[in-house]
């Protein structure tokens, strides 16, 4: 158990996840994705709804079976969760779910639910001196320590998500996964919760995989960004670089659609067409039917993610 310090904490290699429907060929929700998260790094995964980013998050946490590929966390392969509890080593991965109304038990006090997380860390053999109390965790997420005695329904959506974050942190995760953790929240609480997740993860030296469709939030909190379209990553790179110089036509279209607060009254650019059905993806490059720069051959040849971090034939050597 002496992992190479430069090795990524989480490594996803050529992952394929399929969903089966009766009477139809399987839908490849994630169709060959490779992604790394290092300790202390915040990776933002963005894309339109239905692009497979939540499926990827669930696979990382062992909640969905893999069809092909491999997920390794700290040298341990992530195997899908069955009836038994997760392997102890894998409890270092903790997830914050989208809907804090569904992810907390309404019939148990907040403090005892956070204590579950702390017990998980203890079960992994973390020394007792390093363990915290629910009250301490609640203070760290910006809630009063007295909240431990109360029930989830006494809190607003933003506060509940803070409780869910406190529970995840109680397990002393080395990798925190947030699956759209802010999209169910009141618009003005979104940024607060997102920045809280970043600071808590970075503070404890954990990696954070933050999934969101909100580009403006991801831009603020992620060190590295990966853009997903229809089950594949089309571009990845340091957030500032991708923002300043997006290369994939899809990334460009996404960024052009973000309205700028310059007071000029310019309507953002619209990307024509809808996301195609993932059960029947277009041939060749999956983006070619909507791509303004598609040229001959884009409908036949599927581009791979090259070293520069973009999967587009415009940049092929």
């Amino acid at each position: 158990m002496t992992p190479d310090p430069t090795a990524p904490l989480l490594s996803v290699d050529d992952l394929v996840v399929q969903y089966h429907r009766p009477g139809a060929p399987p839908t490849r929700a994630v169709a060959g994705v490779s992604l790394q998260v290092r300790a202390g790094e915040v990776v933002g995964l963005v894309g339109e709804s239905g692009c497979g980013k939540s499926t990827l998050a669930r696979a990382v946490c062992g909640l969905t079976a893999l069809a092909e590929g491999r997920i390794t966390y700290d040298g341990t392969p992530v195997r899908p969760l069955r009836v038994r509890r997760r392997e102890l080593a894998l409890t270092g991965i903790q997830m914050v779910f989208q809907d804090p109304y569904g992810s907390l038990n309404p019939r148990r006090r907040v403090g005892s639910q956070i204590a579950d997380g702390i017990r998980t860390a203890a079960g992994r053999g973390e020394s007792a001196a390093e363990l915290t109390t629910p009250e301490d965790l609640l203070t760290r997420v910006g809630l009063p320590a007295s909240a431990a005695e109360r029930y989830p329904q006494e809190f607003s959506g933003g506060q509940r998500q803070r409780i869910a974050i406190a529970r995840a942190l109680g397990a002393r995760p080395r990798l925190l996964v947030g699956d759209e953790p802010i999209s169910a929240l009141d618009a003005s609480a979104q940024l607060q919760v997102a920045t809280l997740m970043r600071s808590l993860a970075v503070e404890s030296g954990a990696g954070l995989l933050f999934i969101s469709h909100d580009l403006s939030v991801v831009r603020l909190i992620a060190d590295r960004i990966a853009v997903m379209y229809l089950g594949r990553i089309v571009e990845t790179g340091p957030t500032a670089e991708v923002w300043a110089d997006p290369r994939h036509p899809y990334t460009r279209a996404l960024l052009a659609a973000v309205p700028k607060p310059d007071g000029a009254g310019v309507l953002p650019a619209e990307l024509p067409g809808d996301v195609p059905d993932p059960a029947d993806p277009p041939s060749g490059c999956r983006f070619h039917p909507r791509c303004p720069q598609a040229f001959d051959g884009c409908d036949r040849e599927e581009p791979q993610l090259i070293a520069g971090g973009v999967a587009c034939r415009l940049y092929a050597a």
């Binding site: 580009l215 403006s216 659609a257 309507l267 953002p268």
Partner: peptide
Amino acid sequence: DVTVQAGVLRLLRGLCDDLGLAVLLVTHD
């Protein structure tokens, strides 16, 4: 999604201009 938002914003602006609608737009964005 932002790409969808762009379409809905265009739609709202167009409807407001065409129908002479008065719109109160509450947003933090």
